[in-house]
Design a protein around this nucleic acid. Structure first.
Lengths: 117, 117
DNA sequence: TACCTTTACAGCCAGTTACTTGTACAAGTA
DNA sequence: TACTTGTACAAGTAACTGGCTGTAAAGGTA
């Protein structure tokens, strides 16, 4: 069973499972606006470097992180597009959320007139 | 040892973990538009009734399902609002997705004028 | 060269998950 | 009452997860 999706997103399983951990979400927060080396990420947690490295591995495998090597360091950053499966899931199960998001966007960044004729 | 997860906010964890399983997502698809008794849900899967019952339990515990008893049967339905943590997560990590959703909504349901004062 | 820094890999372990089979219980029906 | 149906609860198990410690490898620096 479990037929393959032909969407740009692979199985959403890995993405959702990766996101279902507070440590990993915190890692994403740290790298969502700028790259950070693994060591600096690890320093923010009450875990060993190795444990954080494993979390990074999970996020990387889910496609949520980009990795760039610079000398001995590895710089990580959030790959925003990889959240596409989450958006699809929301669109499928809670289409009403779309309009709520729409309102939120309009309130946050009101545009003069961007409506379709 | 290994101090267990000190959940910053345990809310999204249960929802995301519950959603990170294809069987459970399929259950949600079955009940997203209409109630269904547990037995009819179970009949759609190549699993035992008990296994599906456990999946339903996970979804219920995450707040994703409502339960209504009718005689010996228990009718389940998707509780859409429980996807709120998913929406929040998307808003936090992929704000650009909001405008993409906004466009999708505008294309689907163009409104005359519904702006906030 | 030797040493240090940065990071991942390997192996171990306890707790969790996703199943299974067996059973109990509540609510209809004969 | 006894029987059937619909469903959850209980206990067992293999595989997975998330932490740990120890170690190796890649790349700088003296």
């Amino acid at each position: 069973m479990a037929e393959r999706r032909q969407s740009t997103s692979a199985a959403p399983d890995a993405v959702l499972r990766a996101l279902a951990d507070p440590h990993r979400r915190q890692i994403l927060r740290l790298v969502q606006h700028a790259e950070l080396p693994a060591g600096q990420i690890a320093a923010r947690f009450p875990l060993t470097q190795q444990a954080v490295s494993q979390h990074i591995g999970v996020l990387k495998q889910a496609g949520l992180l980009t990795e760039r090597r610079e000398g001995t360091r590895r710089l990580y950053a959030l790959r925003h597009e990889s959240l596409e499966p989450v958006r699809e899931l929301l669109a499928e199960f809670w289409p009403d959320a779309l309009s709520r998001l729409k309102k939120a966007v309009e309130t946050a960044h009101p545009r003069p007139s961007t409506r379709k004729p």
